[in-house]
Every structure is written in C-alpha cells, then in structure tokens.
Design a binder for these strands. Sequence first.
DNA 1: AAGATCGATGTAAACGATTCCACGCAATCC
DNA 2: GGATTGCGTGGAATCGTTTACATCGATCTT
Lengths: 336, 336
Amino acid sequence: MATIKDVARAAGLSTATVSRVLNDHPSVTAATRAAVQDAIQRLDYHPNSAARTLRSADVSTLGLVVGDVVNPFFSELARAVENEARAHGYYVVIGNADEDPDRQDEYLSILLDRRVAGLLLCPTAEVSPLVADVVRGGRPVVFVDREIDGLDVPVVRSDSRLPVTALVDHLVRLGHRDPAIISGPTGLSTGRERLAAFRDALATHGIGLPESRVRVGDFQMDSGVAAMRSLLDQPEPPTAVFAADNLMALGALRCVHERGLRLGTDIALASFDDLPWFEYVEPPITAIRQQTERIGRTAVRELVALLDGRPARSHALPCTLVTRASCGEPVPGGEG
Amino acid sequence: MATIKDVARAAGLSTATVSRVLNDHPSVTAATRAAVQDAIQRLDYHPNSAARTLRSADVSTLGLVVGDVVNPFFSELARAVENEARAHGYYVVIGNADEDPDRQDEYLSILLDRRVAGLLLCPTAEVSPLVADVVRGGRPVVFVDREIDGLDVPVVRSDSRLPVTALVDHLVRLGHRDPAIISGPTGLSTGRERLAAFRDALATHGIGLPESRVRVGDFQMDSGVAAMRSLLDQPEPPTAVFAADNLMALGALRCVHERGLRLGTDIALASFDDLPWFEYVEPPITAIRQQTERIGRTAVRELVALLDGRPARSHALPCTLVTRASCGEPVPGGEG
DNA sequence: AAGATCGATGTAAACGATTCCACGCAATCC
DNA sequence: GGATTGCGTGGAATCGTTTACATCGATCTT
C-alpha cells in the first residue's frame, strides 16, 4: 500500500508538502497541489489513519458501553446518544456488555485503547476495579441509567421513586393488596432503587413485601419468565406483578400466556419502561415511561461539557406512569 | 496519559520488556512480569492502539455496522455476532448507520481507521464509493442481511422468496384478493427481493400488484404509520397488508389502532421478521421468522474464515412462516 | 575449567503520518 | 540598494509501539 513517501517521491516533493495538501493547509501553490493530487490518484494512495491518530490524537469519537443492546431501552438510548453526539461533532462507537461485568470491562478497555475522547457507561456491576481506575484516572466519563456508590461521576438517569409510588397507589386503588415485584439485580443501582421505592410505597399503605413477593431477575427476558413462574407456583400467588424492566415484563407476559391466564383479570402486570407495543397488547400494559431520549441527550451534553473543560452535573429525570388496562381497570384516556 | 516509557521507567525496565509482558511473550521472568503488571496498575496504563496498529495491525477486534440499532432484528443480530465473535477470540465494536448511507460511510471510515481486523456490514445503500473501495482494497468484509449488486463479497442473509410465497398462499387462502405491501427501500436488496417475491407470488394466483397496493417505507417505524395511513385512505383500501420489516409492521399496527380498526377482521397484517411480542397482541400477528441468530453466527464464521486466509462463501438461510390470527383465521397450533 | 548454549533483558530502528523550524527567494520598505 | 517581510517548501523530530539484534550472566558440555 502506498505511503506518503511514495506520493512525495512520485510528485518530486517532500512528505511535508504532501501532508499539507492532504490537510488543506493554505500555503501550497495551486500547481503543487495539483501535482500532489495527481500522484495520489496515480498511486491510489489512502492515508494510514493509525499513523495519523498516533501523531495527533483522535478527538472525534465517543465510546458508549450499554448494558444490553437487545434491550429496547438501551437501543433507544444508543440512538439518542448518537444523534446528540453528532450534533456536537462526535461519532459514537458502541460496546455491548450484555449485562456481564467482565464484558463491560473488556469493552471499556478496548474503547480506552482506541483513544476515544470520552466515555458513556451504563455500569453493569457495583464493583469494577477497572471502572474505578478509569474514573480516578481523570478520564472524561459519564454514567447513564445506573450509578456506582462511592464514585464521584456525573450520572444521568431516571428518578424512579415518584413513578413507582404512583404505580403502587394505582395498584392499591384497584384492590391489589399483595403485589409482587420482579426486581432487577440488587447489585445495580436501578435494581435496588426500584425495589426500595416499591417496598416503601407499599409500606405507606400498610402493606408489607415478604420474600414470597420478591423475585430477583437480571433485566433480561428469560429471568422474567422464570420469576413469573416461580411467583405463580406459590400456594397463594400474587394478584399483581411489577416487572422492573421491559424485558422481564415481556418474559412475565410469556409466562402468563403459557398458563392461559387472562391479563388484567386473572393477573395484573405493570412494567418499568414503556414500549410502543405495550399499547397493542390485550389488555394494554400499564408502564412507567422513562424519557429515554432525553437521558441520552443529556448524558452526551454532560460528557461534552467535561471534554470542554466545563463542570458536569448529575440529573435524575422524571418519569410518567402510563396507566392502561393491564392492572384490572380499563382507564379511559389512559395515555398520560 | 501514561505511555509504555512511563511504565518502563516506573518498573525500572526497558520498553521492550514491558512490551513483551503486554504481548505475553514467553521469555519474561514471573518476577519481571509482576513488576510490570504492578506499574501498569499504578499508572492506569492503556496501550495506545494507534501506535500498536501502526507497527503491527490489530487483530483482535471486528467492526459491525448495522442498519439501525433500534430495529430488534439488528440488535439481536448484534448480540449473535458478538457471541460468535467472542468464541473465536474477537471483540466487536458497533457502529449505527441509522439507515443513513452517509452515516454508514462515516462509521465504515472510523472502524477502518481504527484498523479493525475485519468488517461485518449491513449496507444501507446500493452505491457507496467507499464500500466499493474497501472491498476492492481487499479488506476482509462480509455483508449481512443485504447485498450490493456487482460487489463480489460473501453475503449472509435470509432467503425471502419461499416464505413470502407461503405467506401469499396463506393470504389468498383466507380470501384476500388484493393484498398490499409496505415495502422497504428499493435501493436495498432486501427491499427489492421481498417486493419482487410478493409480486411474483401474487402473480401465480392471477393477482396483480398495482401502484395503489404498494407503499415504500424506510424500514423504520414512522414510515410504517405513514404508509398504512396512505393505504387505508384510498377509496378502496386493501383487506390485507404485508409489512416488509418489523418496525414498519409496528407502525402499521399503530395506524390500525388510531383508526379503531380490528386486526384480523377489518384489516389483515403480516410482517417480515417475527418478534416475541407478536404472539401477545390481540389477535397475534402472522410473521415470517428469520433465523437471526444463525445469520449473525454464520456471518462471523465466514469473516473468520476470510481472516484465516480460507475462502468464504455466501449463505441464503431459510425462514419460516409463523401463521397466527392477524390475517383473519385463527389457526390452531399456529406456531410453526 | 573454558567455551558453547540459552534465557532474560536492553538498544535502537522501524511503522506513516504531522508539524516546528529553517531556508531560499521574491517583493517590499526606507 | 541593503534590510525586512512573507511565502512556499524541505529537513527532521516526533507520536507510542513492536521487534530484530546485541548483550550479558548463568548453566551446561566435555
């Protein structure tokens, strides 16, 4: 493959001049420029970008490590991140942790190795020496969706307490006296928070949350199926179930269908994370809607602030409870 | 940012030795190795991959450019690609074209700049000088899902003809005499093929496909809404609609709900791409199921073959028609 | 016990681009 | 008309790594 030296030789010029032509440097004669262009054409020369980025660091790419690409929340997040990043002149390359802390660390390494300008991370584990190192190393990092105790990193996420409280009120109003939860991993801040919010909200109604009403999944679909089965297999199954993310809600739904139960009458189901198709299931599924797009955009803005040397701050964005019919009572005009 | 020199100095060794540790060279004492590891930890050192690939090309990372991360087909594909790649010792970084040819080219450039070992690409446009250059430049590339006429690149995709024919037979059997299609872009091989297969299959039943029965979307949700509206706004709307991908099917579904129509009785709907939740909509949605996981895994295997200097071949994997009730007739035991 | 062998480490030359600095030359100034 | 300015270009250092070759003890051979 032709190098800049070959071009220089072919054009009878120095590599410095060729480089100037390549980078649109003003002080090059039109004639010289043409000669270089010609040599480039003839030799089918393509600059080696490894050499290029070695010399002058790449500042155009951001890294995004998501919890699980298959999770629509994260893919929508990825799209939002990308759109906002492009508006600021950055590209985004994505690594998929698949909810596996080891994979997360690997992609973290790869992206750092590749010298991305900054990192957006949805941490998949509470403790990761690598993450801690990266943060302490002073690299520009923003956490998205999840935070890690003890690490002073800007976090952009949803505030789960209010909407979960609203959901519990909704459930209790419909007569559910012993709702269950399919929680996310308690090792993740989102898992913990949603569970705690659920428990606390029930407590205000004088309702406890015994172990028989809690199952812990991993935010992926299969764990939702298993959790729902386990809940329904009890002597006194719950009348309502709150799945802490959309994939586990889908899994729960699969189980409900397996058993031939009717949603909303035999068993109530609600989900953290709203999805377009929740509206089209019969009956439509009540869900807590996150401002996914806004989360992504805000996170990018904070990261860009960091990159520009400005201070960044954390955000807990509000959610809305979208009440539909899956918890028992058809709510007219439920959207909103 | 720490360099190999800093590590060498901190460990009281030469850069050569540090490099040997980094690359698992056998002839390094355990003690020396430990000292280097320690220094690496302390300094939070990450090798500069630009320098590394400048000296000797990086062989551990594959690049994947998907059509649209938000499309569940592509996110499932991404997961499969990643799992298979890891089994072969590769990592995968993802770029999202968002169905935009310019973005595709940008990510292609970025990934090539970063000197990934090989590329998996879901081309978003028929003509792209960059893609052509890359292919002609002899870089290891495998196309996934879509192909480009005139480029001799291994392609791993679904064979759409058989299942689309089966779908049309199904529709005709249920009495639909003028089905419509929400096609993908005709600039994409998948768009063209599915449309052609639909038209040809109808022809064998003596049914034509006039312009009033064809709408062209972009494989994204909004275009499905618009296309469905346009189809239904006609004086004589079709009784059945085939959406050429899952996102446009979701869009069509939104339109059906907007209008207060009942799926299966007022209007039939079928989709290319099956999704778990299609089963839980009322009535469940008939769909053509691709072997997404197998497509991803096969594509990686072919790319790995290329990287190992072995020949690679193309694959057209079979799909299955999963008949459910959305086209009018509840089919008992419809799964399969 | 002296030379051959071997294993661990260091030295320094690449890789291909960018860019600071210096140089020569023409045009301009006083 | 000699000094100054400015412009186009070239020389060479530099980015951070890998790796061929050199070095240097220690061990082995006979």
